[in-house]
Amino acid sequence: MKKIKIAAGIFWAILCLLLILVLFPGLNNFSSGISRFPFMKINPNLTGGEAAEQIVMKSCTLVVRKPVFDGLIGERKQGFVQIDWRGNLPEIISDTIDYDLDKKPDFVIRIGRSESSTVLKPLNPKVRKVGISTPTSYGWSARIKIEK
């Protein structure tokens, strides 16, 4: 039994040695392998959710994302909806958004890019306030807090 234990210990140690030897040359392959696991995607609370609607305008594209209410189990009562403006943006951005796609406007958002000001006018009682409003590498993004 003692000998078996020693042999098993040495075998496991040598296996670990081999594992370290292949780790760095194979890192890219291992990483892409692990990235295919079903849980290897960023939570919508961080990505902003999937695009629900794209409206192509004169110089830019308006992307309205699906509302995000994701919680640990099920959905939360409070969430947000992310709006992206991509392309060449005007100095003042002003848009009326229908985030739930019910053909009724839910809020009006007005962004002054130079002074970084964002004014929200809720038209739907579920719309609460501005969460994030920030310039991005592709234009501008705003997250509006909403209720379910």
Binding site: S31, S35, K41, I42, P44, N45, L72
Partner: peptide, 27 residues
Amino acid sequence: PAAFTKSIIFPGTILGGFANISSMAVL
């Protein structure tokens, strides 16, 4: 969160870019 929501709760990149989640997790 990965077990319950099947997602990662970190605003990084899964693959590619500097210090991506997959490589760091494997390491």
